[in-house]
Amino acid sequence: MRSTPAVRARGISKWFGRVIALDEVDLDVGAGQVHGLVGPNGAGKTTLLGLLLGLARPDAGSLEILGTPARQTLVVPDGVAGFVDGPGLYPTLTARQNLAALASLRGTRTSSAVDDALEQVGLGDVADNRVRGFSLGMRQRLGLAAALLTHPRLLILDEPSNGLDPAGKQHVHQVIGRLSDDGVAVVLSSHRMDDVAALCTDVTLLATGRVVFTGPLAKLAAESDENDYRVITSDSAKAAVVAADTPGLRIIEAGDALVVRGPVLAIDHLVIRLVGADVALRELTPVVSPLEAAFLALTHTESPL
């Protein structure tokens, strides 16, 4: 028995005609790790997840999944499960029929495995309802249940929190957390940094097919040297003058609430100067989280502000 990474990608590239979807991507995911793939639309997340599920093979580079080189399309090691581009369910079938068909295709013992998977994602009560009537969140959970049928060691999930209400999201997060505790490697994509922050230990940021960051979440937060902060004071006009004089700080928006951009050190100086100028500080909050700021900075995406 030797320790083997769940995913080891080195310099993998994938082209669709003249369009490059992935450009020399490196990725390492260890057992029990929950690894987030984040990036704007068209960054290559779904393509990368598709390669991990064996839907295609890379045009260049090397990819090992559970220690086995991926050389052939649709040939992946036993223990890989998941979904890309939606959970892929048949609306005319019931939740149970959808899972039973998949279990049968996988040679799994049907009824107990299906019931167990449905219970795990909290859909046991609606097992015999047609999927047509399911909400997006319920479909996402059913997609997760389908992936759980085979007791995976590498779970690939494309936007698993998409459409989930807070309770559903908590349910999915608990399932993923439990799987991680059991040593299952999880690779998931998301647009939402709060989901990634809640679930993932490591993250890879993709932009136009290239990796712009990969590593622990804490390191990503530190990557962001500048952030936007909303400042509310007792005298906004005087506060704007003080902010303009503070080195390393730029005013993004002036008004009753002042929005400034700069590193944490400059913000510290601003607070000290405001107090020195007899301006009371009533609120100081980051406009976006540090993780999101890092994401926006690294992927050159505009802040929603």
């Binding site: 028995m1 030797r2 320790s3 083997t4 990474p5 769940a6 260890g30 057992a31 029990g32 790790q33 559970l66 220690g67 086995t68 040939v75 992946v76 090691p77 036993d78 223990g79 060691r153 991680s180 059991d182 040593g183 490697a185």
Partner: peptide, 10 residues
């Protein structure tokens, strides 16, 4: 995390 993975079959 110290879990290990054995080399599986396709």
């Amino acid at each position: 995390m110290s879990a290990t993975l054995t080399r599986p079959v396709d």
